[in-house]
Design a protein around this nucleic acid. Sequence first.
DNA 1: GCAAAAGTGTTAACTGTACACCCATGA
DNA 2: TCATGGGTGTACAGTTAACACTTTTGC
Lengths: 247, 247
Amino acid sequence: MPNRKSLLNPHISIDCVVFGFDLEKLMVLTIERGADAEGKKLRLALPGDLIMDNQNLDDNASRILLELTGLSNIFMEQIGAFGDPNRTETEGDKDWLKYIRDKPAARVVTIAYYSLVNMMNSNLHPSSFAKSASWLPVKDITELAFDHLQILQAGLNKLKSDIATKPIGYHLLPEKFTITQLNNLYEAILDKKIDKRNFRRKISKLDILIELKEKQKDVAHKPSTYVKFNEKRYKKLLSAAEENFSF
Amino acid sequence: MPNRKSLLNPHISIDCVVFGFDLEKLMVLTIERGADAEGKKLRLALPGDLIMDNQNLDDNASRILLELTGLSNIFMEQIGAFGDPNRTETEGDKDWLKYIRDKPAARVVTIAYYSLVNMMNSNLHPSSFAKSASWLPVKDITELAFDHLQILQAGLNKLKSDIATKPIGYHLLPEKFTITQLNNLYEAILDKKIDKRNFRRKISKLDILIELKEKQKDVAHKPSTYVKFNEKRYKKLLSAAEENFSF
DNA sequence: GCAAAAGTGTTAACTGTACACCCATGA
DNA sequence: TCATGGGTGTACAGTTAACACTTTTGC
């Protein structure tokens, strides 16, 4: 793929912490090395790629996510830049870079993003930079290539504080969902129990959920009412909050 | 300065939003162009420079601040990365880049930091990248080179949300100060009036200020008691808050 | 004695949190 | 009829927000 390589800026990359939710646990999208010397233990990494010089940073991140998940219009927030000179110094990591990059020894600063996707809609396909991609529970991840574990932690922290102030969680859910599922999502992200009565009160005061006629079927308990997200109302709330911000 | 130039990575820069406080207004450090074609209006910019490949990002930012202000151990937080491909496309901006950079046409992604300094201690001296440096009231700034106005705004927003949760304001004040001055600082940053009784109560409950024996002199009103910041207590508070964060 | 900022308490509204029981369904 | 999760209200504690007068100093 020398042709592809030459379009890329060898000094700046994007890495993405892609969060998903299986209605129970918070998941993150990982890739396996696109190539690996025989016998070496495969090591997981976050999806990422060098940037293209004709796109801005956000568009580069969108491009990478589209390649990997088939999804566009994904919710994304920048986490920040990571650029320790020795972030790519582990032996196995260097071997991999030699394979996938034009200038494997160049110092690379990476811009990290986190994004929220509906796992059900995503259709993973390995891409130019990934041999295989898979969803793993965030809690099970103890090791990643380069400084990706640090980036994952930073993304998780930012998600925690973002979700406390903006109801962005719906990006992780299917179009129709139950309030209990939303509650579970908050518990998974904040990593603590949330009282369901208090949660319902809080959410319903925001007035951003629309009750559907439909109820759960084939469940061995009182079926829950499905709701969907009221995007217009949410956007109004957000812009009102921003206006208040400075005054 | 070709020698200096060659040590720098021409693709990645750091820009710094350096905040100060003159006990009344929030100020920001700006530089004038190091060179300017005759007759052209001078344009202000944020201090910044290309990175050196042997330093990590934080150390690069510290280096730039030390050169400019003579201060080390400055409080700093990363704002994020800014990298529109056309961020350096304004005509005057391009001329300037030709003068100060080795590869003026290269795409540069910049990592922005904000920092808080005690204006009284800082001793500005123009440096390799700045013809002159000066403090300006944040509110008076309506135009800056490149995308620096956007970066300033982002830095201000981050400062606003940081100071609401962490009492970092003391970095902007002299060693001894009055509670009214601290109140004024919060008003300047948050850009709104704060009730002094409520403010005093809140601050004193944190128990991070130590009352000094000394009082104001030569003021035509009841003299205020000076206080200083209790750093140990503050650090204890912070680490306790972080432990609570995930559980 | 007057102008100017320091310093000090109380009350009402709101927000967060803890807690337990009945309901609808499938098996 | 039992197991399972759905759905609901109340009371207390803590926090925020509004508000006015006396004190100390220089002039």
